[in-house]
């Protein structure tokens, strides 16, 4: 922190403030949720198409990870109230 210049330090402190951090966490949650839905669509996609690579396997794993992150962030927000 001490190695940062004064303006960078101010920006970093502002980013870490409760409100800004909350807004970024909210955005991250929505992004993870949207990405989860996008990956999970691979189920009907796979039912219609004969997948021969690892895309279905990997997309399901990635979507479950993103869903977990979104749930973690959501709970952080909900359980503060």
């Amino acid at each position: 922190m001490d190695k940062l210049s004064a303006p960078a330090r101010t920006r970093f402190k502002r980013f870490c403030s409760e409100r800004t951090f909350g807004v970024w966490m909210g955005r991250a949650m929505v992004a993870c949720f949207v990405a989860f839905l996008a990956f999970f669509v691979s189920l009907p996609y796979a039912l219609l198409r004969d997948v021969r690579g690892l895309e279905l396997y990997l997309s399901w794993i990635v979507s479950a990870c993103l869903w977990s992150v979104a749930v973690g962030i959501y709970l952080r927000k909900v359980l503060k109230r």
Partner: peptide, 10 residues
């Protein structure tokens, strides 16, 4: 069959 695709009907 192809085990890398969804093998079960819906």
């Amino acid at each position: 069959g192809n085990l890398l695709s969804c093998r079960w009907p819906l």
